[in-house]
Computed example of a mutant assay.
Amino acid sequence: MNISHLGAKDCVTGSCHLIQTAPGSADSINILVDCGSAYGDDPELPFDQFPVAPEAIQYLFLTHAHIDHIGRVPDLIDAGFRGEIICTHATKALLLPMLRDAMSFSREQWRKNDRERLEVLLDKLSWGFELHQTFSLKKGITFKLSNAGHILGSCFILFTFPDDHGNEYRVIFSGDLGCTDTPILPDPDPPESCDLLILESTYGNRTHPNRKNRIEALRNLLHKALADKGIVYIPAFALWAEPRNCSMNWTG
């Protein structure tokens, strides 16, 4: 088995990771984990430089619906990918609204029929799965999705690969992880044991403050700003989706 980090290896954006169960063999199961857009000076590897061609990828797993994890999915489909796109139910509900919004300002020249064709293909290829259940892929490979606590629908993935001796090799891809004690979002699930952990480290060099005290900390800052006649800037990040696309039960 070989794992190649095709994006977000030495940077933050453009997450993309390839698993090949038998590199160079026609029998290889090729699994892509995320296919995101890169921003700023972060590199973005062209598809013709991937270790395998897009049409040879059988599965694309999406950890969540942020554009730096899903933004290149339409391009991957355009390049020939026709495998299964696997994610949580909530991520599937967010895929089209998030990509449609991103493409509206990054691809102004897209013709309407091209956009509609790719949206139909994306919806046809993508499948939502439940959390905390084990599902089977080809050749005895299994996967399980668990709460990552990052955004609605975010998950980390446990893959189990069998070998010729009746043993299992367990690999976890964390995706982006959230913190505990976040309103609305579930806490991240504790991971099971694994042989290999591929872990995001965007904030790996710092300790986050205790989130239970955030309301009190914000209150103190506002009182200080009012006393000083100052200005408070509050950055806000949000996901938007049409209600009809999210009218489903989500166990996360």
Rank of each mutant, 00 (worst) to 15 (best):
G149M: 03
G230K: 08
A79L: 05
M248D: 10
I67Y: 01
F237T: 14
T134K: 14
H66V: 11
L125G: 01
H66E: 14
L62N: 03
P43N: 08
Y203G: 04
L199Q: 14
V33K: 03
N245C: 11
Q20L: 09
G230Y: 07
R170T: 10
L137T: 05
W250L: 11
E116P: 01
P162Y: 08
V12R: 10
I141G: 04
I198C: 02
C179E: 15
C11R: 08
Y203R: 05
P235Q: 09
F156W: 13
E192S: 11
S201M: 10
V33A: 01
E44W: 01
D181A: 13
V232M: 13
T142K: 05
H69P: 05
P191D: 03
R206C: 12
I234P: 02
L118H: 11
G36I: 04
I31K: 06
V171L: 10
Q58L: 05
Y233L: 13
A65E: 04
L239Y: 12
C179R: 15
L197V: 04
I151F: 05
H69T: 04
P54A: 03
K144A: 12
H132P: 05
I19G: 01
A38L: 00
Y233S: 12
I157V: 13
L62Q: 00
V12A: 05
L221C: 12
T202W: 13
R219Q: 14
W240R: 13
V33S: 04
T160P: 02
D48P: 01
D34K: 02
P51Y: 08
